[in-house]
Design a protein around this nucleic acid. Structure first.
Length: 585
RNA sequence: GCGAGCGUAGCACAAUGGAUAGUGUAGUGGCCUCCGAAGCCAUUGAUCCGGGUUCGACUCCCGGCGCUCGCACCA
């Protein structure tokens, strides 16, 4: 029996067709498929409720009509029932579950199933994008891990993904940095810990420009010199960027984060005049208080709040570079879709950027990409205030990651003292870094995030260690049998799931496709986290209820199939989130 | 002032307009002669307030209240 990867999507198409043959107004009928509470079924179609109401029909009668015209193949796959006011419930039959489990038997096969979702779509994902000369701190980790997960998910689901780290290497901070470097630098400190010294120089220069307007002007002048190609400032700029890049690389390596391009703001330096010219020529930009700005008269706020694309001192800002970047991504990368990840505080900027881009591209006859500003909440301190660089010192990311590994190592050593130290270190790395990463991914990105060591390094509940532990227990079964987990002979002749725990686990596994679709549609990795956590929970319940290594070869093969697929889906899902599965811990 | 986001058990979170609002933690009571107890089973406890739309609202709309953030040359 052939079975599709995303059964619910397939069923939706079947229902649309059935509606036509049942005499419904097929064009007006949407099945409204969704995953159901397991108590009711695997999927439910709610569409007849609204359809019947609008036509003063009895929804249950409409549901009856619809079910009567379902093709035999669909009736073979599901137990179909009508419940309540007119919900149609579909429950996967054990034979269908078996078919799904035997069809999607490897990461490659899961991937080829999911690849239908976004085939041919070219996506530019802009994430991390730190500012040069500042250390990465705890506030940066969220955008990095969410961005990496989104890239992996989109790739898995068939999209072509171009990862771009849009480094802030050309902003006003360079005016202050260069001024600080020239006037305040400590050569000894620069030699021993260059990044630390750069950060100090920036803070000192920033403070100095707040105190004295003359210093602020001097810093701005340094920036203008840099932007005009002054040789000395350009050399300094290169030096500062090189120091920063090395420090960023170290963190990216630790977090297994990758980019195809790192086109910082400076890359767009020679592409800015085109932005000024075109926006002026199309009548979108105007002069205001000495600056070049764009207003949006139709917008309640942006009709008076300007989008400044050139400052009154003649320098560009991030509105200019972001506009140039938008153009480059469409013209050079041929992007169908662009996703930019930043925290929600930049909402106004990206709304103005997108409004401006739409008008600009329309007037210049360019293809408009799909654009999404993927936002996430701020990292707050225990006091509920955003962690800021200027006030107090936020926790440095490299220190956070080091502490995560240290704490994980202590726990591994306590739980598994018999393992060799090198292995315990490796486990601590996967568990510690994984815990940090998972804590950021598991929470809905729209909410603010209160930083707490206990939360980030929690090893109980919906956390990385729980998922990794489930993986090792499955591995342990295969190890005990001296079998490779992907050894087909172990599961040969497996029959359909029978016990309640077997069936519950199989149903959860078949829900993977729908989870991938939901996660990528909304670009919210926490949907996948929740799913994996529930899957691990179903496995744990199954593990406690039904013994796998039993004498009866039929029961054993049947349960080993569930073990093998649980392992497959858990490991595939964890890797999509950027976690590293372990064989034991 | 204008705008955005958030408001769910003591705490931390989930819920694509659907059925009896789920989970973790903390509390209580069970489960290791039995494939790994970083586990399993059971149990106590919640939608900020007031209207509206809908067959159906934590979810959408309006009005409050509270917290956070943004609003002319930082990114």
């Amino acid at each position: 029996m052939p079975v599709s990867f995303d059964i619910a999507a397939d069923l939706e198409v079947t229902l649309k067709a059935a509606a036509a043959s049942a005499g419904l107004e097929a064009a007006a009928f949407a099945p409204e498929m969704r995953t159901a509470d397991p108590r009711h079924g695997d999927f439910q179609a709610n569409g007849v409720l609204g359809y019947a109401k609008a036509r003063k029909l009895n929804p249950r009668a409409v549901a009856e009509q619809l079910i009567a015209t379902l093709p035999a193949a669909a009736k073979d796959q599901f137990e179909v029932s009508i419940a309540g006011p007119g919900f149609i419930n579909f429950k996967l039959k054990p034979a269908t579950l078996l078919a799904w489990l035997t069809t999607y038997d490897s990461t490659a096969h899961l991937k080829s199933g999911a690849a239908e979702f976004y085939r041919g779509l070219r996506n530019v994902v802009d994430f991390s994008s730190p500012n040069t000369a500042k250390q990465l701190h705890v506030g940066h980790v969220r955008g990095m891990v969410i961005g990496e997960a989104i890239c992996r998910l989109l790739e898995f689901c068939g999209a072509e993904v171009i990862r771009d780290n849009h480094i802030g290497d050309w902003g006003t901070q360079f005016g202050k940095l260069i001024w600080g470097y020239k006037n305040l630098r400590n050569d000894a400190a620069l030699a021993t810990d260059p990044l630390e010294e750069l950060e100090r120089l920036y803070k000192a220069a920033d403070a100095a420009s707040k105190e004295a307007p003359a210093t602020l002007d001097a810093a701005r002048a340094e920036l203008v010199k840099l932007q005009n190609g002054d040789a000395e400032n350009l050399a300094l700029w290169k030096k500062i960027n090189a120091i920063s890049a090395g420090a960023f690389e170290e963190i990216y390596r630790k977090l297994d984060i990758h980019f195809d391009h790192q086109l910082g703001e400076s890359f767009y330096n020679d592409k800015l005049p085109q932005v000024y010219e075109e926006l002026r020529a199309t009548g979108l930009a105007e002069d205001s208080q000495g600056a070049l700005v764009v207003f949006h008269p139709e917008h309640p706020r942006f009709k008076t709040q300007p989008f400044i694309i050139r400052k009154s001192d003649g320098a560009s800002n991030y509105a200019t570079t972001d506009l140039a970047t938008m153009l480059y991504r469409v013209e050079h990368f041929k992007a169908d879709a662009i996703a930019i990840l930043t925290d929600t505080r930049q909402g106004d900027h990206f709304e103005q950027l997108w409004l401006t881009t739409q008008k600009w591209f329309a007037k210049t006859n360019r293809k408009l990409p799909h654009f999404e500003h993927v936002t996430f909440g701020s990292i707050l301190g225990e006091d509920g205030k955003a962690i800021k660089t200027r006030s107090g010192d936020p926790i440095k990311l490299k220190d956070l990651l080091a502490e995560a590994e240290t704490r994980a190592f202590a726990i591994v050593t306590e739980k598994s003292p018999e393992l060799p130290e090198a292995e315990r270190r490796d486990i601590a790395n996967a568990v510690g870094i994984g815990a940090v990463r998972y804590a950021d991914l598991a929470q809905n990105r729209s909410s603010d995030y209160v930083f707490a060591w206990d939360k980030i390094l929690s090893f109980e509940g919906n956390t990385a260690p729980y998922l990794l532990y489930a993986v090792t227990r499955v591995r342990s079964i295969f190890r005990k049998l001296d079998l490779a987990a992907d050894d087909a002979s172990a599961t040969r002749g497996a029959t359909a799931p029978e016990t309640p725990a077997e069936i519950a686990l199989a149903r959860k596994l078949a829900g993977f496709a729908n989870t991938l679709r939901l996660t990528t549609t909304q670009l919210r990795p926490h949907f996948l986290c929740t799913y994996l956590y529930e899957l691990a929970g179903e496995f744990s319940s199954f593990y406690a209820a039904d013994k796998v290594i039993v004498d009866d070869p039929a029961i054993r093969a049947r349960r080993l199939l569930l073990c093998a697929r649980t392992l497959l889906v858990l490991e595939t899902g964890l890797r999509l989130l950027g976690l590293r599965p372990l064989t034991r811990m």
